[in-house]
Amino acid sequence: MPARHDIAAERELWDAYAESVFAHDAEPRFRWTQYADHGPGPELLGAPRSVLEIGCGTGRAVAHLAQRGVHAKGVDLSPVMVAKARERWRATGARFECAEVLDFLAEDGATYDAVYSVFGAAWFTDPSRLFPLVARRLAPGGVFAFSQPPAIPGAYGPQGMYKGGFAGPALFTYRYSHTPRGWRNLLRRAGFTRVEARVLDAPTPGHIGTLIVRASR
């Protein structure tokens, strides 16, 4: 059975998350992994003049790039998240849009040198629908890159996730998990080339690593 996304319920879930997460984001920063001072930085995007982050959350990565002269835009489903990001990072020149990512990519007339996701929309959106739309928004030679936790062995495809606590209203979303090989195949089917997918080990042995994927149009 395919995943049944309830966008209104998912928006409510991310609004609730936004209320808590902004207290911990004091300055712009860009990192692909869940560990401080670990792994690659924005160099995975090449040297883009324009970028789009899908599922930008707090917007700190968008702000980091905007401070360095990149035309940087983020899109997120949560109006609370977007309002807070606009207020927090206004001085950097970063731009933020509130929209469901598939709708935004289908309707957006712009193209970008890079589209990326850091534990964002590439983790929470059906890749068979997302990847072709991302390809349409990339300039020739553009880069699509994303990071997220690696799949739990044997658990592939959409994985249901309730809002934390397992109590209260049944707010849930779906995460999408595949092996690195599975991600490579999905991207190639969507027309991407030079596809790389790997799991970067955590800085502490035995801890959860980070899936990092990079592809070109």
Rank of each mutant, 00 (worst) to 15 (best):
Y162L: 13
Y176M: 03
R217Y: 08
R184H: 06
G120A: 01
G165C: 15
K84L: 15
V195M: 12
R60Y: 02
R175M: 15
P28I: 02
T125Y: 03
F146G: 02
R188D: 10
T173Q: 12
A155G: 06
G209D: 05
E19N: 11
L200V: 02
G165R: 01
E12N: 03
Y112P: 04
P149K: 11
F166E: 13
T179Y: 13
P132I: 09
R31E: 06
Q148K: 12
A8C: 02
A99I: 06
F124L: 14
A66Y: 08
L13P: 02
Y116L: 03
A16Q: 14
T210V: 04
G165D: 10
V62M: 02
I7C: 10
K163F: 13
T204Y: 10
R95C: 14
A139I: 14
I208G: 09
P42Q: 04
G39A: 07
G74L: 01
A170T: 12
R88Q: 12
R88S: 03
R194F: 09
Y35K: 10
P140M: 08
L105D: 12
F124Y: 10
D113G: 03
T193G: 15
A18G: 14
L52N: 00
T33R: 02
A114C: 10
L211K: 08
W14H: 00
Y35L: 04
K84I: 06
L44Y: 05
Y176H: 13
T193Y: 11
A99N: 00
R4S: 11
P158I: 06
A190N: 07
S78F: 08
E12F: 02
R49A: 15
R217L: 06
Q159F: 14
A66D: 05
P28D: 10
E10V: 11
H178C: 13
R60M: 01
H5V: 08
E43P: 07
W123M: 15
P149V: 15
G142K: 01
V195Y: 00
R49D: 09
Y35D: 04
P40D: 03
L171Y: 07
P140W: 09
G59A: 06
R181W: 14
V143A: 04
L44C: 10
M81A: 15
G46V: 03
A63P: 09
A63T: 13
P2D: 06
W89C: 03
F146H: 01
F146K: 00
P150S: 03
G93H: 01
P48M: 00
R95I: 06
R49S: 15
G154A: 15
Y174P: 00
G154I: 04
P153N: 05
G59Y: 02
V118D: 00
G165A: 13
A9S: 14
V134I: 11
C98S: 07
I208Y: 01
R29C: 14
F96T: 04
